[in-house]
């Protein structure tokens, strides 16, 4: 058994003195692990850094074995993001979310393409990518079967003035219909409305609302169903954006559960 494909490094855990069990995201094979011999050695440690795009070759005798990995660096995303705290937080959060939420060896090409696009554009600055990152998380939720229904109001069926989301059902609620329960609903940022991000410019307050919204459903559904908390890297991204917005950082999973 063997395959070769471009892959994004999601995690590399040391094994023994110099080996590493590497978790990757590929387009055709989904999240896939493998053993990189000497993966933590001086020669290879920089290759298996989280976020790097690597041309990977996986070989195993049987398909259900862990298999061994060799790779060649295509895009050093980790090295390029290290100087910028927000870029590094975004890269770490995306890899941690994909690694924790996506099932192993199940192809999710849209999640791969979305993450690839984020990584490719990261050297240009992390802040303009935050709306796309939030949309990528919403897309990931949809791919996992926990999609948000933001097209129409859950109460009136209207499509106008949608400003809230029910934290229980993930359905949008209009301003008028949601007013009596405003304290228990999650704000719906405009960046999650419209097609392909065809909305106006957004700022830290909107990004924070978006991260709180997707973080709530990632924590409740994608991670909650596995009895796992949201990854610490995702929380650190939230805290960093909260600092940008000048808000008190409140972990996303502490949202209302109405």
């Amino acid at each position: 058994m063997e395959w070769q494909a471009p892959a994004i490094v999601l995690d590399a855990r040391p094994l023994g003195e110099s080996g590493a069990v590497v978790s990757l995201l590929t387009e055709a094979h989904g999240r896939h692990a493998g053993l990189a011999r000497a993966g933590t050695s001086r020669a290879q440690a920089s290759l298996w850094q989280r976020g790097n795009l690597v041309e990977v070759r996986w070989v195993a005798r049987l398909p259900d074995q862990l298999g061994s990995l060799t790779g060649e660096l295509v895009h050093p995303a980790a090295a390029l993001a290290m100087e910028d705290p927000l870029a590094l937080a975004l890269l770490s959060a995306a890899c941690a979310v994909a690694d924790g939420a996506l099932p192993e060896r199940e192809a999710h090409p849209r999640s791969f393409q979305g993450l690839l696009s984020l990584i490719a554009r990261l050297p240009g600055g992390a802040a303009p990518l935050l709306p796309d990152y939030i949309r990528w998380e919403a897309e990931l939720l949809a791919e996992l079967g926990y999609g948000l229904d933001l097209g129409r109001c859950a109460v009136t069926g209207g499509t106008e003035d949608l400003v809230w989301v029910s934290p229980r059902t993930g359905r949008a609620v209009s301003a008028a219909a949601g007013e009596p329960w405003a304290a228990r609903l999650l704000p719906l940022p405009g960046l999650l409305l419209g097609q392909g991000g065809a909305v106006g410019p957004s700022g830290p307050a909107e990004w924070l609302a978006g991260l709180r919204l997707t973080g709530h459903f990632l924590g409740k559904d994608a991670f909650g169903h596995q009895h796992k908390p949201l990854p610490a890297a995702r929380e650190r991204l939230f805290d960093r954006v909260a600092a940008l917005a000048g808000a008190d950082p409140v972990p996303a999973e502490r949202g209302s559960d109405a």
Partner: peptide, 23 residues
């Protein structure tokens, strides 16, 4: 971060080169 002492550029990994160029 960057080029180590005695390190030729053609044998450096791409990540180190990218970091060195950026810094």
């Amino acid at each position: 971060q960057g080029v180590p002492m005695g390190g030729a550029l053609d044998v450096l990994d791409e990540g180190t080169l990218a970091a060195a160029l950026k810094a």
